[in-house]
Amino acid sequence: MSDHDHDDGSHLSEIQLRVRALETILTEKGYVDPTVLDQIVEHFETKVGPHVGAKVVARAWVDPTFRSNLLADATKAITESGRFGTIGEHLIAVENTPEQHNMVVCTLCSCYPWDVLGLPPVWYKSAPYRSRVVMDPRSVLADFGVTLPPTTGIRVWDSTAETRYLVLPQRPAGTEGWSEERLASLVTRDSMIGTGLPAQPGAQTS
């Protein structure tokens, strides 16, 4: 930025300068509090993530009442159970069946169910995913190494600022009698976005 940088001084990139300027102004005006900013970052780096969604899915697999509540109103079911944190947005759970596989996208930007999955992976935010999943979901699935029977239809759900989606994948066969915790270990992030399937019980490495 300046052309008189001293070699023994420090340097901030243009983008770092922009963010620091923004934060300083908003802090001085009382719009943001640096302590709160740190708490927000910590929350997203350590507290929320796909492990939360995996527990929700596992619960739905073992508890039919929770499952039907989840499909009726995911925000309410998850928040009221008191076990998975609160859901601050309107969340809809969509259930995979042998007849229908669900995939989630945000074609506008990157709306994503943060409270249950954390922040989205890079590919979710990329233009190729955002545009292609709508036009040709089956080939996107193939990119992710997933092939569905031709008899399984695919429905793509476009998220909005107000409505987010969580895919409830099908419980893998051969997991009868498994504990919730063990079942949750099979639930991958991608399986809750619809670009993947849960891990198979035999394929577990640990």
Partner: peptide, 16 residues
Amino acid sequence: LQRYREAWDRAADRTP
């Protein structure tokens, strides 16, 4: 915004 960016730039320059 620009004034604060320049200020941060100067702060960086004078900081070891």
